[in-house]
């Protein structure tokens, strides 16, 4: 039972981006995908949630093929994405944004509410509860976006560049929150990141995406130590 992407090919009309990508996320696992710009990282998560159509290959969720399901149906089955740039509803309040996440949980909302734990650890979200989302700073918005996704009780969580545009300090916070989410929800997390070093430090396993293909995969710590990765993605001389 996992989230499995098998030989996925997808992209845009005149520009095929993914050319046969296979990725697997097990429950409770934090898997990082690192790679250069244009390697297809965002395309990969958009394809997994169904915002981009597969040309061939498949996406299976807990053994069931969801390749032909619409995005909202995949979300209802517990596949949540936090898109690049946060994408909060700007003119809804923080509370309303999170309420929309809760709404998506539907029948999956059983047991302890993981949102409470997050709010306790990061009280800033609670402090901003009644404010319009657009008035929040980038870091705060990312916190709310993550909380919103968690409110939907995801079984798998896809995070697209959560640190994009954040200051070093806020990036630290976001990575701490991701750790906490993994701890509290038991969801499998697929983390797509430009900040390869931090992503690899946080992850259990990792994939390196190059030109729409997986060029390396394996234990995150090992990849982080490997010369190839250090040279290409960590900027080490």
């Amino acid at each position: 039972m996992s989230l499995v992407v098998e030989k996925a090919e997808s992209g845009y009309d005149r520009n095929p981006i993914l050319t046969g990508v296979s990725v697997r996320v097990d429950p409770g696992e934090l898997v990082a995908v690192v790679g250069s710009n244009g390697a297809g990282k965002t395309t990969l998560v958009r394809t997994i949630v169904g915002q981009l159509a597969l040309r061939s290959g498949s996406v299976t969720l807990e053994g069931a093929d969801v390749s032909s399901l619409a995005t909202h149906k995949r979300a209802k089955q517990g596949l949540m994405m936090v898109p690049e740039g946060r994408k909060l509803f700007p003119r809804l309040t923080v509370g309303e944004n999170i309420a929309l996440g809760r709404r998506a949980a539907g029948k999956r909302a059983t047991g302890e509410d993981p949102v409470e734990a997050l709010l306790e650890a990061f009280p800033v979200v609670k402090e901003r509860w009644g404010q319009q989302a657009s008035l929040l700073s980038g870091g705060e918005q990312q916190m709310v976006a993550l909380t919103r996704a968690v409110a939907a009780r995801p079984s798998y969580l896809l995070l697209d560049e959560p640190s994009l545009g954040l200051s070093p300090l806020k990036t630290l916070d976001v990575f701490r929150l991701i750790e906490l989410i993994r701890e509290r929800t038991g969801a499998g997390v697929l983390l797509v990141e430009q900040m390869a070093d931090q992503a690899l430090a946080a992850a259990d396993r990792a994939y390196v995406l190059e030109h729409g293909r997986i060029s390396m995969e394996g234990d995150a710590a090992e990849l982080r130590a490997s010369d190839e990765v250090r040279r290409a993605y960590l900027g080490a001389a």
């Binding site: 200051s167 070093p168 300090l169 990036t171 630290l172 990575f175 701490r176 750790e179 430009q194 900040m195 390869a196 070093d197 931090q198 430090a201 946080a202 993605y233 960590l234 900027g235 080490a236 001389a237």
Partner: peptide, 21 residues
Amino acid sequence: AYLGKPFDENEHGAAPAADTT
């Protein structure tokens, strides 16, 4: 207010001078 920890010029990271753990 910003960096979280002093910037280390010897660290040639693409990432800002900060780490998760």
